[in-house]
Design a protein around this nucleic acid. Structure first.
Lengths: 340, 340
DNA sequence: CAATCTGATTGAAAGGTTTCAATTGATGTT
DNA sequence: AACATCAATTGAAACCTTTCAATCAGATTG
């Protein structure tokens, strides 16, 4: 079975406390003693017991990552950023998919609290941050991921969603489109709401029109359904801006099935710029977010708070999105322009 | 701060041991005592300290999931299966991307050992299972994921990769193709090797020819590079079978850039049937694997071993793959057939 | 030479649980 | 009435660390 510090101490003929010092305060121990202890550690293949350590020190190198859905390539990439930053710091990441359901999120938060994680990275399933209050009270470092912190007591790392919405709209407007559709996701997702605000402002100030269409979830399946329903009701437009790439990919399927060509009949603009956007049926114009960097930055924030809560100052890091034009968007056709 | 079992015991006027019994052996405690304790738990918002519990009981409801790359939608979906099974059983999953690098895998295994996880689900980065020996010796439940267990001392959940390779080959052969290319990944990945065996056998016994092309990693980028190199060397063929969908998606880009049409000039067959295979430039014919089920089954195996190591019998679960025909594969063209 | 200081090491307590042998009180048996 | 049985509860030890006050041996100082 695994050996403990006691075994190491015995083999190296020192006390338990000295072994602990070798591990945690090497500056306190004489070089040759340290060498002896290290030899014993190697000999016994001693691996510290993290739970025991955490019990005594109240310091855990474990992070909880709570995201709506890791199947969404956006979050997959964010998760990679989180994980790499965590591993660098000797931390480990517990993956929690909330499916954007409050109930599931609550269950996970309880489990994470029970596990006494040092920090939590969360893209909340709902606006209220109440459920996080308990955690904060118990000294857990919380960082909001892809959401801007509303209050002063947490860090956050996010991307400017209003600007992203505006970028998408301006791209469509610049191509001459006047009749847009905004394919939104659930209204209570803050990212969606912000993108919508940015888009609406841009469209209005250009005097163009935009219709709102809501998908139930941020998935291809939902996007396909929503677009199919809209088309069957005779909705007319020349450009479609989607709250994320999955919705766009789904909507494109419905559009194709209805005999509409992209970008000839309809220009489509996605959001996130997931890897598959580039290999889609028609390479997708999209608003790129620095996904990996977002996760990486968020993890570094939360880790720094874990390491030294006392001197930690809460921060909000915000990244800028960027429009990537591909074949799915094109100037509005002449017939369309005249057709009105 | 969080309250402990001692606080609960005091409030409910019982001993510590009784509180523990309420939590772990409710059958031993009188109904009204239990009720009193539960009231106290609710009152104090007591949440058990999992690390302390694990320290004493040597039983942790924590799993390590080690995969090459969660960005690969195949593993994303597998991970969802793992996570759902875990949450159902009150377990939590630590996500570890090995990037298929032995060094990174070793680092993670050490961290997982330090965390004293109850079980590990792993798609090994290399053939040797040596590094797992230590863990097994220390009583950690190990289950091989998407790999068949070679020995008796671990469980495994996998998909029949030889059959998958054969399915892909037979599909191409049935469509009349006689000059195939097998776009393989790194040779030391067992899944790739097995698929290759299945494919080669099928092709040979049909008397057709197949050339082997190797990509460095199982990614779109690698697929694109490999195919580009092959084309620039004048490789000729009518059907391309890929070791996974990402390679296929990448290869298709290179093929398109070279002016080749799919499926008119080249039929392409992928492997995994990731969600994006269906929305690709040309919907991709692929070998479907029950990804979610694979993860779910593997997690259930490892959890059952965690819960009751004594009565646990190691098992190998194997799923069957299935060919999904889409537009990327078509009968070999007449000119091609005659051209030989 | 006594007193003080410094650096290295030690020993014991504490952290929150589970486990198990021991105790208690009530019920049933002879 | 004495005893055995049984269910419920208790108390203390154990799990493996970290922490910190206390000790010790030398070196430095006055």
């Amino acid at each position: 079975m695994g050996s403990s510090m006691k075994d190491v101490a015995t083999l190296a003929s020192v006390s338990l406390g000295t072994v602990s010092n070798v591990l945690n305060h090497p500056e306190l121990v004489a070089p040759d003693t340290a060498a002896r202890v290290h030899r014993a550690i190697r000999e016994l293949e001693f691996i510290p017991n993290a739970p025991a350590r955490q019990l005594r020190s109240h310091h855990a190198r474990v992070l909880g990552l709570v995201v709506p859905d890791i199947s969404n390539p956006f979050f997959t990439e964010v998760a990679r950023g989180v994980e790499d930053a965590a591993l660098d710091a000797g931390y480990v990441v517990i993956l929690c998919n909330s499916d954007a359901q409050a109930e599931r999120e609550d269950r996970y938060l309880a489990v994470l609290e029970s596990q006494r994680v040092g920090g939590i990275l969360i893209t909340p399933a709902r606006k209220s941050l109440k459920p996080l209050g308990r955690l904060l009270g118990n000294g857990v470092a919380v960082t909001l991921l892809d959401n801007e912190a509303p209050a002063q007591d947490v860090c956050s790392a996010s991307v400017d969603d209003r600007m992203g919405g505006a970028l998408a709209a301006e791209h469509a407007l610049k191509l001459g489109h006047r009749r847009l559709v905004w394919l939104a996701g659930p209204t209570d997702i803050p990212q969606v709401a912000d993108r919508e605000v940015g888009l609406m402002n841009a469209v209005r100030s250009a005097g163009a029109s935009v219709q709102r269409l809501a998908a139930e979830h941020m998935t291809t399946a939902s996007g396909e359904m929503a677009m199919e329903a809209a088309l069957s009701q005779g909705m007319e437009f020349t450009a479609l801006v989607c709250a994320n790439d999955l919705l766009a990919l789904g909507a494109i399927r419905a559009l194709n099935r209805a005999g509409l060509r992209i970008p000839d009949d309809i220009s489509v603009i996605g959001y996130d710029d997931i890897e598959f956007a580039a290999s889609a049926a028609v390479p997708l114009t999209s608003v790129r977010q620095p996904k990996y960097e977002l996760g990486h930055a968020a993890a570094r924030l939360v880790i720094s708070e874990c390491e030294d809560p006392a001197s930690h100052a809460h921060q909000r890091v915000q990244f800028q999105p960027q429009l990537v034009a591909r074949q799915s968007s094109a100037p509005v056709s002449a017939s369309e322009t005249l057709g009105r």
